[in-house]
Design a protein around this nucleic acid. Structure first.
Length: 816
DNA sequence: GTTAAGTCCATACC
DNA sequence: ACAGGTATGGACTTAAC
């Protein structure tokens, strides 16, 4: 029979000595089905020039590896003309009985005469499978298949299962089946505990939230119209709780109910925020203690955790997504949020905050407190659900573009995305994949010093009128493409690059072109999907430069990365030169942007000059008009020598202020300082002088001196980036963290430590660090000399005002 | 004991 | 370990007197 099929999750198993891939997904009617397909494990032998291929094949056919209970053999060999790093090679594709033994068979073959390299034994089975069969995730496939019920194939009873005979993508980038979108059935969850250490305390409650879509909306999430599923499971008792609260006898029963509800809801995706690092391991630990099995997923086995910096929790057939991982790896650099907490990220992306709940109350909870806590708990899952809806188009597009399983794509870092994109597109270039670097190679790469990077122009401090900002579009990517910079195009001299287009720059060119196309489509006809798609291609293009310089990359090429930076620099310097020769004054430039004064020239003249520069730029490089700014401010460095780079403030024609680098945008300065500086910059840019700003400054000094400032405005937040014992030098935030630890407040790497500086006699600032709630008075002198003044001094200096004298004046007046 | 230079550290820009 | 280099500036630590 023939079915339409959207694969969502993949795993594999051995049967009759061969490898099989099992895909869980949805069929054309939106039902969950399972498709099993055989996989012929294989890798490549690249031959030396002039080697006798058939002779080698004969020898290779005899290779056999016995390991534990399994004997792996070579099944067949196919001789082919391939490319490896752009060069034509003769190669043998070696098919083996089991993918797990490919590496060992390759090693066994190792020393054989005539073999230049062994490749692709280190690519994960699922990746090779998807690549070779075109069974891309979350895209509709046309599958010729036979229905099976053979339990030895690990078929589950309550799901239709097929053995694939032929798999074909239905292509042309359709979202789902027919004209319908694939809408996953999603369930979010969140737990509350009294101790944050994994498994240490009981889980007090678990919340679940899901929305069942209208059946006309698309494939997947079908049910009655707009039904909401929300639940809090708890073993705590209270009266008058909302209907969504379900009381259990004890923790064990609560965990069992959780499993039941998840299985009954049967989501495609089970998701939480930081659930890899907290909720799921906690559930597992408590389930173990209580002797409960977290039998979630189609195999009814508990979650498995893959190793890594953060363990990744996996169920079979239900994709567990930790939204934090995706936000952290892909989104964070484009967010304004100062932390990646659910609260901040959800506020920025979906405009929803968490509910307030005072965790200090936990030790002494009244009936109504519990009801508040339940409400808080379910709200968290609700907010998480909204967040998922918001970022799903991005996760979906990344998955479809990178062609790796959703589980991995939602966790991988940008370098991995770039690499997977390459691996899944190599066939079009007839390329055999490069191997992963060995431990020693990584060490060697890391030991290389830095290469020279971007150019930054030292600005002359001042308040300027009528500035123009140019920037290069995707500069580094356009340099890589225009100059053909990559591992496979590096000449033997190790410096210059081949003229003949390499697959890496070509692929990157396609990424940039595709991005342009979808951006255009998006502008003409905006949709969340087009925005996400265009954005995914953009992020991929932007990460390509970093990828070539990243020590862990298969296609690492330091020379290409260094050349990219150097040629970018040459081009921006040459553009600056041309702008200056055109009679303009350059105010600033950083990496790919140039800021100049419009002077007496008209906008038309500016654009004409821009066009002339563009006509002379190499390849696809392009200098764009970013914007016109009526006013801009640049300041001196703190030491007073030279203009400060990476610090400026601009105001656009709509009165919108853009602040870069200043303390205003730094989270490790107190709110008093940041707010004041922000107001001062805004006033100066709006008024064109410092008078109003000076009044605001004086007011703050007076308030500070008069002890009228709230402690919350004086709290300083600094991230603890290593273990307390690893610090060589004990800064104030380390001292604060030690103080917390001494008081029994949990301290962990990565947390934001909050403190203020109080009065005292200690020599170091760290000796006068206090925590929220402490009764010690704030240190007026510190906040004046180390916070407020440093942040505004060099701004007023532009107007020739010595602001510390003004501050002293305020003190004098008060004294008299 | 004080001060200047050097180092560590966090955070930002692009 | 999980894209790169450039840059600022606070606070601590150490060397020199």
């Amino acid at each position: 029979m023939e079915i339409e099929f959207i694969p969502i999750d993949y795993d594999y198993f051995d049967f009759n000595g061969g490898n099989y891939v099992r895909m869980i997904g949805r069929d054309g009617r939106g039902r969950r089905v399972c498709v099993i397909d055989s996989y012929e494990a294989n890798f490549w032998l690249i031959l030396e020039d002039g080697a006798d291929a058939s002779k080698i094949v004969k020898k290779v056919m005899k290779v056999e590896v016995t390991k534990a209970s399994r004997t792996s053999k070579v099944l067949k060999c196919v001789i082919a003309d391939k490319k490896y790093l752009g060069k034509d090679v003769k190669a043998i594709r070696v098919f083996v009985t089991n993918h797990k033994d490919a590496h060992e068979i390759a090693s066994e073959i190792g020393d054989m005469k005539g073999i230049f390299k062994r490749r692709e034994y280190d690519i994960p089975l699922i990746t090779k499978y998807i690549k070779e069969k075109g069974a891309s995730p979350l895209q509709c496939l046309h599958v010729k298949a036979e229905r099976v019920t053979d339990n030895r194939l690990q078929v589950t009873e309550d799901m239709d299962c097929y053995i694939a005979e032929e798999i074909k993508p239905i292509g042309n980038r359709k979202q789902g089946i027919g004209n319908k979108e694939f809408v996953p059935k999603v369930l979010t969850y969140d737990i509350e505990t009294s101790d944050v250490e994994i498994g240490k305390s009981e889980i007090l409650m678990i919340s679940l939230y899901g929305e069942l879509g209208n059946k006309d909306e698309g494939i997947g999430n079908r049910s009655k119209d707009g039904e909401i599923f929300e639940k809090v499971l708890t073993w705590k008792k209270s009266e008058g709780a909302g209907d969504y609260v379900e009381f259990c006898e004890d923790e064990a029963e609560m965990l069992e109910k959780f499993v039941e509800y998840v299985n009954e809801y049967s989501p495609d995706i089970l998701t939480g925020y930081f659930s890899d690092g907290f909720d799921l391991p906690y559930l597992k630990a408590r389930a173990d203690i209580n002797g409960v099995k977290l039998a979630i997923g189609i195999d009814s086995k508990g979650p498995s955790f893959t190793r890594g910096r953060i363990p990744s929790g996996k169920f079979c057939g239900i994709v567990h997504v930790d939204m934090y991982r995706f936000v952290d790896a892909v989104f964070s650099q484009y967010l304004q949020s100062e932390t990646l907490s659910l609260n901040e990220v959800a506020k920025e992306l979906v405009g929803e905050s968490k509910e307030d709940f005072d965790f200090a109350k936990l030790s002494n909870m009244k009936n109504s407190d519990w009801n508040d806590f339940f409400s808080y708990n379910v709200h968290d899952s609700r907010v998480a659900y909204k967040l998922f809806e918001k970022i799903w188009p991005d996760i979906l597009e990344f998955t479809k573009i990178v062609k790796e399983p959703l589980f991995d794509v939602s966790r991988d870092r940008m370098s991995t995305h770039v690499e997977n994109y390459i691996l899944h597109n190599l066939d079009r270039f007839n390329e055999i994949a490069e191997k992963r670097p060995s431990y020693n190679e990584i060490r060697e790469r890391k030991s290389m010093g830095k290469y020279e990077g971007a150019f930054v122009f030292e600005p002359v401090p001042g308040l300027y009128d009528d500035l123009v900002m140019f920037d290069f579009t995707s500069m580094y990517a356009s340099v890589i493409i225009s100059y053909n910079l990559s591992k496979s195009t590096l000449n033997e001299d190790g410096e210059t690059f081949n003229e003949k287009a390499g697959f890496f720059p070509t692929m990157l060119g396609e990424v940039v072109e595709t991005r342009k196309k979808y951006k255009k489509e998006y502008v003409a006809n905006p949709s969340g999907m087009l925005k996400a798609r265009s954005n995914a291609y953009k992020l991929l293009a932007n990460a390509a430069y970093g990828y070539q310089g990243f020590f862990g990359a298969r296609y690492y090429c330091r020379e290409a990365a260094a050349a990219t930076a150097r040629l970018a620099k040459e081009n921006i310097l040459s553009a600056i030169d041309k702008i200056e020769k055109g009679g303009y004054k350059i105010i600033y430039s950083d990496t790919d942007s140039i800021c100049l004064l419009q002077g007496e020239k008209s906008r038309k003249e500016v654009l004409g000059m821009l066009k002339k520069i563009n006509d002379e730029l190499p390849g696809i490089m392009e200098l764009d008009l970013e914007d016109f700014y009526p006013r801009g401010l640049f300041v001196l460095k703190r030491g007073g020598v030279g203009g400060a780079k990476k610090k400026y403030a601009l105001i656009d024609e709509n009165g919108k202020v853009k602040i870069r680098g200043f303390e205003t945008v730094r989270r490790d300065w107190c709110a008093l300082t940041r707010d004041l500086q922000s107001k001062i910059l805004t006033d100066i840019l709006k008024d064109g002088n410092e008078k109003g700003a000076l009044v605001k400054f004086k007011e703050v000094v007076k308030k500070l001196k008069g002890r009228e400032v709230e402690i919350s405005d004086l709290m300083i937040r600094t991230q603890l980036r290593q273990a307390l014992s690893d610090y060589v030098s004990e800064g104030p935030h380390v001292a604060a963290a030690k103080k917390m630890e001494a008081r029994g407040i949990p301290v962990s790497v990565g947390m934001l430590v909050e403190y203020y500086i109080g009065e005292g006699s200690g020599k170091r600032i760290g000796d006068r660090v206090y925590l929220v709630g402490d009764k010690v008075k704030y240190d007026v002198d510190y906040y004046l000399k180390n916070q407020v003044l440093p942040a505004v001094e060099n701004i007023f200096e532009v107007f020739g005002i010595d602001v510390s004298a003004v501050a002293d004046g305020e003190v004098q007046k008060k004294l008299f």
